[in-house]
């Protein structure tokens, strides 16, 4: 049986970190539209991470961002 501490630790390890480089982002909406779990939203002319907990690390945003602005890491 897994203790709650271990389970928590395992979850923490897997949690993806989504970052948007605001200097590179040109606000094309691609990440906002193609994210299946609505992690991003537009704020002014750039995309921002609104809902980081929802990220399932499908990597669609990093794959599709034409501006090298979105990175997903663990």
């Amino acid at each position: 049986m897994i203790s709650s501490f271990e389970r928590h630790g395992a979850m923490e390890k897997k949690k993806p970190v989504v970052l948007v480089n605001e200097r590179y982002c040109k606000g094309c909406h691609i990440c906002v539209e193609f994210c299946p779990t609505s992690v991003f939203e537009m704020r002014g002319f750039t995309a921002v991470v609104k809902n980081p907990e929802a990220c399932i690390a499908c990597m669609q945003c990093e794959l599709r961002c034409p501006d090298f602005a979105v990175t997903v890491s663990q």
Binding site: K26, C28, P66, F68
Partner: peptide, 9 residues
């Protein structure tokens, strides 16, 4: 970077 291509190119 950033490159010169337009938003969404």
């Amino acid at each position: 970077l950033p490159h010169i291509w337009c938003p969404g190119c």
